[in-house]
Write a protein that binds this DNA or RNA. Structure first.
Lengths: 195, 195
DNA sequence: ATGTAATGAGTGAGCGCTCACTCATTACAG
DNA sequence: CTGTAATGAGTGAGCGCTCACTCATTACAT
């Protein structure tokens, strides 16, 4: 029945995400996931063609969902500063509510990013668009948006990485405004050219 | 003879680093490395106890070497701004001369960082120390140095990641001063407290 | 009764690693 | 200088094992 199948699939997804984040994608076996979800190994293959598709399914759905949330947030705000604050704040609280998902995305991005097509929504595209539009509005100096996008991502992601490794102990949400401020300041300077 | 053994070991190291960076640590097999280095599988075990030790050997030596280079650079400069510029510039040119090593460090850090002992030199410690001392000198406002360290790392590392994935096409060295400037600006603000 | 979902023992490819062996190089006794 | 013993890096077939994946069978809902 569809209802039962859906429930099983959700259990697979939840367990897989957690184990992938905890042990790494290669170290977490299909057996681990099945046992953790309280089902048999074979059942996983009724829901996913193979392990790679399971990983991709988890990555892409969460990646796109994140992009959509970021996009809705930035659209609701006016001005670069407010958009940055909204996005950074969401990122930080996302870590608090679902650290496993966060670690998972960090961990598998290197392997899965090549499969992301240009047509798919992505957090990177959202941020770049926000920066490009701020340039058009004259809020920041017109420059190649790509390095600036990277800088903004770095300012937010690296503290999250530090948090994952326990180097930062306080909740990320407490750093939210500091990080948004850092992004703002890093974007402001106009004296350095693009070369 | 020792001479020949040393040469072999260097070939192993070079090939392993390249293949690990290209295919990932789990995807690159001992056989791949041996074939790539033009030797037999067994030979690798004359030089490393097992695969994990090979990975760790490559990681730790490069990680510590990087920390040492950063430390020598920052010591040669006076003032936070100059130290930042020196370190960022070295980072960027490091990518240009040895992108495989760079990708390798990025790729395996999640797995190897837990093995890094507090006694080992590390790039993170160097940067944190530079920031702490700048606080003591009153160059920047005294705050928890950990988030600031993360921000500086993010500003430099994430553009490198973008470079690896081809999202940034220009050489990183051309972005060096922009990144150093971004770090400087992100560190400057004193209005936001530490909470 | 029929189709869908779940099961889990079975399979085999592929992996890291071992070890008995080779052989060029070195050390040394006469 | 020469024959001989010792050395140890290099070899690669093969072993043990893991793990993704299969499929005949069972459970269950309608």
């Amino acid at each position: 029945m569809a209802r039962r199948a859906e429930e099983t699939r959700e259990r697979i997804d939840r367990t897989a995400l957690r184990l992938f984040a905890e042990k790494g994608v290669d170290q977490a076996t299909i057996n681990d996931i099945a046992t953790g979800a309280g089902i048999a190994e074979g059942t996983i293959y009724r829901h996913y063609k193979n392990k790679e598709e399971l990983i991709w399914g988890l990555f892409s759905s969460n990646y796109v969902a994140l992009a959509d949330r970021l996009d809705r947030l930035q659209e609701a705000e006016t001005g670069l500063r407010a958009k940055l604050e909204a996005m950074v704040s969401m990122f930080c609280s996302l870590y608090e509510c679902d650290p496993a998902m966060f670690s998972f995305l960090l961990l598998v991005q290197h392997r899965q990013l090549p499969r992301v097509t240009p047509a798919m929504p992505s957090p990177v595209k959202v941020v770049r668009e926000v920066l490009s539009q701020a340039m058009e509005r004259g809020e920041i100096a017109p420059r190649d948006p790509e390095p600036l996008t990277a800088i903004v991502f770095g300012i937010v992601l690296q503290p999250a990485v530090f948090k994952v490794y326990g180097r930062i102990e306080r909740p990320l949400t407490e750093l939210s405004s500091q990080l948004a401020e850092a992004c703002w300041m890093a974007l402001k300077p106009t004296s350095i050219g693009t070369g």
